[in-house]
């Protein structure tokens, strides 16, 4: 019973997603809302403001440096957590 209900719900959600996907802008559309907000300013000003020819690098490490700081901290925290999980010396290992 629950399985059938799950399948029905999944089909409905899939239909909903397909309907929404039809109204998405096509790939590479320069009139899409995502390309109208801050992207033109980055493209026009990135070299002037950061002297970095690689626009991806300028956005990643300058305009969006908070985001990159978070990524770095997440990676370091993952390393520390690995040490805590795998680096412990258990009494049963001594033998």
């Amino acid at each position: 019973m629950i399985k059938k209900a799950t399948v029905v719900v999944l089909i409905l959600v899939g239909l909903l997603f397909s309907y929404v996907a039809l109204s998405l802008p096509p790939t590479g559309d320069h009139e899409a809302p995502a390309a109208l907000h801050v992207s033109p300013r980055y493209i026009e000003k990135a070299y002037e403001e950061t002297k970095t020819p690689n626009m991806v690098c300028a956005v990643l490490a300058d305009y969006r440096s908070y985001d990159t700081l978070g990524e770095t901290v997440v990676i370091v925290v993952a390393g520390i957590a690995t040490v805590f999980i795998l680096g412990v010396r258990r009494p049963s290992d001594e033998a």
Binding site: E49, T52, T72, I75, V76
Partner: peptide, 30 residues
Amino acid sequence: PAEARALGILGIESGVTLGVMGVIFVIFDL
């Protein structure tokens, strides 16, 4: 300021490099 930004980007990228290098090595070693 624009050239200071380029150098600052290089500085923080070096920090990222050290962080990723250390973590990959620590996980492999463990």
